[in-house]
Amino acid sequence: MAGPTDQDKLSENWGLDAAGKSEEARAAEAAAEWAAMIEGVAGDGEDSGDRVLNQDEIDSLLGFDASVGSNVELTGVQALINSALVSYERLPMLEIVFDRLVRLTTTSLRNFTSDNVEVTLDSISSVRFGDYLNSIPLPAILSVIRAEEWENYGLLTVDSSLIYSMIDVLLGGRRVGGNIRVEGRPYTTIELALARRMIEVILDDTHRAFEPVTQVNFKLERMETNPRFAAISRPGNAAILIELRIEMDDRGGKIEILLPYATIEPIREQLLQMFMGEKFGRDPIWEGHLATEIYSADVEIEAVLHEQELPLSRVLNLKTGDMVMFERTPSDPVRLRCGDVELTEAIMGHIGNHVSVRVTRPLNPPKVTMAAFEELDDTVEGR
Rank of each mutant, 00 (worst) to 15 (best):
M1P: 04
K9Y: 11
W14P: 00
G20S: 15
K21D: 06
E29A: 13
I38E: 13
E46T: 03
S48L: 02
R51C: 01
Q55V: 11
D59A: 11
E73A: 14
G76D: 13
A79R: 14
N82W: 06
E89T: 14
L91H: 01
I96P: 00
L104R: 05
T106G: 06
S114A: 12
A140Q: 03
I145M: 13
R146N: 13
W150C: 01
L155F: 02
T157I: 15
S160P: 01
Y164H: 11
S165D: 01
R174H: 05
G177C: 03
N179A: 12
I180S: 06
R181M: 08
V182D: 01
P186S: 12
Y187H: 11
Y187I: 12
A195Q: 14
M198D: 02
D204W: 05
E211P: 02
P212I: 09
V216D: 02
N226P: 03
R228Q: 14
F229R: 07
I232K: 00
S233I: 00
N237P: 00
A238K: 07
I240Y: 02
E243G: 07
L244C: 01
I246T: 11
P260R: 05
T263P: 01
M274Y: 06
F275N: 10
G277C: 05
F280D: 06
R282M: 12
I285Q: 10
E287H: 07
G288A: 12
H289V: 11
H289M: 08
L290I: 14
L290R: 12
E293W: 04
E300T: 15
Q308G: 12
E309C: 04
P311H: 10
L312W: 03
R314G: 06
V315M: 10
V315H: 03
L318D: 04
L318T: 13
K319Q: 14
G321A: 10
M323W: 08
M323L: 15
M325S: 06
S331Y: 06
G339Y: 02
E342H: 07
H354S: 10
H354P: 02
V357Q: 07
T360Y: 04
T360E: 11
A371H: 05
E374A: 11
